[in-house]
Structures are given as C-alpha cells and as structure tokens.
Amino acid sequence: MSGNVGSLGLAINAALVRRILVGFLAEEVHKVGLKRAVLGLSGGIDSALVAYLAAEALGAENVQAIIMPYKQSNPESEAHARLVAERLGIEHCVIGITPMVDAYFELFPDADSMRRGNKMARERMTILFDHSAARSALVLGTSNKTELLLGYGTLYGDMASALNPIGDLYKTQIWQLSEEMEVPREVIDKKPSADLWAGQTDEQELGFTYKAVDELLYQMVDLRKSRAELLAAGFEAAFIEKIYAKVQNSHFKRRLPVIAKVSNRTIDRDFRYSRDWGK
C-alpha cells in the first residue's frame, strides 16, 4: 500500500458509538428476560473493551469474566485480564484449559498448531456456554469486523456468542473506542496476539498491519469501491487480491450451516423471522 491512502473514513465518533453499543447490550440482554452476561477475558483489547461496555450496560455486578489460559499462554495475558476485571470490579475466575486440551491431543500428538489453536478456542466456547446456562447469562462475543471479514477466528470457537457488540467495528476503531472507554493503557498499547504460542502477533501472522488492511476493507466492503478504484486509491494489486480472497474464502464462517432444501419453507431461506421475534 502506498502512502496516498487516506484513513478519514475509519475515524469514529467514539462517544456516540459507546452510547449505541451500551444501549444495544442493555436492551438485547434485558428483553430476553435476563440481566447477566458472561465473557472470556483473554487479556487482549477486544475482550477488554467488551467487558467495559458490558459493565456500563448491565452494571459490574451482572458481568462475569472467565480467564481461560493454556499452559503456553503468555502469563502477561492473564495478568492483563485480571487487571481489566479488577479495574471494573466484575466477578472473574480462572479456568485453565490445559487438562482438557492435552488429554485430547494425546490421541493426536502430531496435530499442527492450527488444530491445537482451534481446539483451544472451542474448549473455551464450551466453558462460556456452560456458564451461560449455569448463571442465566448471555455469552458476549468479542470478534471485531476485521477478523470476522478475514476469517481470522475459529468457527464455533471464539466466533460463537449470543450477542456481539463490537462485530461492526474494525480493529483500528476498536482502538479509538477503547481510548474513549479508558481501557487500561497497557492493554491498548500492546501488540494484538492470538497468544497461541510465545511471541506470536496477529500482524506478523497475517503478514500485514491492521491499519493497512482496515483501510482496504473499509474502501472495499463499506464503500464498495471497484478494483480499479482501489488501485487508483493506491492499494497494491497483490494486496487487493489477497484480501478479497480471504473475505471470499472465509464467508462460510459468517453463515449458518447450509440446509438442503426439500420443503416449501426452509429455515432461513423462506422461513424468515428476526431473532428478536416477540421481544
């Protein structure tokens, strides 16, 4: 990407977004007759931000955070997760996932890091949904728009939730809103990481910066610019192709499972209702 690509479109009115997202969480939790939410705190900025929004929307006493480290997780992650929970005064506990994950991979010792990472994400998901039932609390999603569009997440793992307040915000917008909400400085400033192995960072694994990809995604997805317009805006052809392919190839992750149609009314095709039906 060359230097003439502007980034004005990614600037948000953070106070307004805060108001909308807090309203969203309060209303969508309360109207299903519940008052609590549960979320996984990783120590990263996305889940920290969701915790801040949830505490403001529901009251700190109605938010439960679960910290779910694996033995190889960076200890700093757990420390940052605790810092967020303590700063907010929300209930939190640590449930390590090493015994479950390791027991499974004893059967498949050759499994690669992708399989292991997916398993960890899904292990955490089962813990969150178990607590959802145990505590009558909705599971909050913490995936942002950048990773949802790129498919940089685990289907039925970290992508699973009941409500996601930040799924329409790009990573660079997450940073802006986190400043507004006064998420701890050390959480905002550190490099984003899936924390699957020591020293891993998102940007190194993805091969581009969030700033660069957010700008491209914004112009490609939100503004619907054509390939010619993106080239004219200064994006490199190879970068455009790569990101377009990532969005296309991960689309299955953003959809419900495909149902083979045989009847006159098939779920989600010609049987269509809002989820808030009757709420």
Partner: peptide, 8 residues
C-alpha cells in the same frame, strides 16, 4: 427508538 436484531 429501540433495537431489533442489533439495529438501532
């Protein structure tokens, strides 16, 4: 006012 399926 209000939300329906995440739309305000």
């Amino acid at each position: 006012v209000g939300f329906e399926d995440g739309v305000n």
